Simulated scan of single mutants.
Amino acid sequence: MPWCADAGLRTTSTGTIGAVCLEADVIEHAKNFIRTGAAKLVEYNTASASDKSN
């Protein structure tokens, strides 16, 4: 079980969001929310250019 030292919370995770950089960004937003209590809506687009229809 991972430990979030900044928040003092034990957390678990299942699955992935996508690329590792997205998960790191989500973790940073979560830490900010825990510190400040200010929620923020964040949207990610994981589609590649080849996913777009012509």
Rank of each mutant, 00 (worst) to 15 (best):
residue 2 P to R: 05
residue 2 P to L: 05
residue 3 W to C: 03
residue 3 W to R: 08
residue 3 W to K: 08
residue 3 W to P: 03
residue 4 C to P: 00
residue 5 A to P: 07
residue 5 A to C: 05
residue 5 A to R: 06
residue 6 D to I: 00
residue 6 D to Y: 00
residue 6 D to Q: 01
residue 7 A to N: 07
residue 7 A to L: 09
residue 7 A to I: 03
residue 8 G to L: 05
residue 8 G to H: 07
residue 8 G to W: 04
residue 8 G to S: 08
residue 9 L to P: 04
residue 9 L to S: 12
residue 9 L to C: 15
residue 10 R to Q: 15
residue 11 T to P: 03
residue 11 T to G: 12
residue 12 T to D: 14
residue 12 T to A: 15
residue 13 S to G: 15
residue 14 T to E: 04
residue 14 T to G: 01
residue 15 G to E: 00
residue 15 G to S: 00
residue 15 G to D: 00
residue 15 G to Q: 00
residue 17 I to D: 01
residue 17 I to N: 01
residue 17 I to Q: 03
residue 17 I to S: 05
residue 17 I to E: 03
residue 18 G to T: 00
residue 19 A to V: 05
residue 20 V to H: 06
residue 20 V to N: 04
residue 21 C to F: 11
residue 22 L to T: 05
residue 23 E to L: 05
residue 23 E to F: 02
residue 23 E to P: 04
residue 23 E to A: 12
residue 23 E to C: 05
residue 23 E to W: 04
residue 24 A to T: 11
residue 24 A to P: 02
residue 25 D to Y: 13
residue 26 V to L: 14
residue 26 V to A: 14
residue 26 V to Y: 10
residue 26 V to Q: 10
residue 26 V to D: 07
residue 27 I to P: 03
residue 27 I to Q: 11
residue 29 H to F: 13
residue 29 H to Y: 14
residue 29 H to W: 13
residue 30 A to F: 06
residue 31 K to Q: 10
residue 31 K to I: 01
residue 32 N to W: 01
residue 32 N to L: 07
residue 33 F to V: 03
residue 33 F to L: 08
residue 33 F to A: 04
residue 33 F to P: 00
residue 33 F to I: 03
residue 34 I to E: 07
residue 35 R to E: 08
residue 35 R to T: 06
residue 36 T to F: 04
residue 36 T to N: 07
residue 36 T to G: 05
residue 37 G to V: 05
residue 37 G to Q: 06
residue 37 G to I: 07
residue 39 A to K: 03
residue 39 A to H: 02
residue 40 K to T: 14
residue 41 L to C: 11
residue 41 L to T: 15
residue 41 L to H: 11
residue 41 L to R: 13
residue 42 V to N: 10
residue 42 V to R: 14
residue 42 V to H: 11
residue 42 V to I: 14
residue 42 V to M: 11
residue 43 E to S: 13
residue 43 E to D: 14
residue 44 Y to W: 06
residue 46 T to C: 11
residue 46 T to A: 13
residue 46 T to D: 15
residue 47 A to G: 08
residue 48 S to Q: 15
residue 48 S to C: 15
residue 49 A to H: 12
residue 50 S to C: 06
residue 51 D to Y: 01
residue 51 D to E: 05
residue 52 K to W: 11
residue 53 S to W: 06
residue 53 S to D: 11
residue 53 S to M: 08
residue 54 N to M: 08
residue 54 N to P: 10
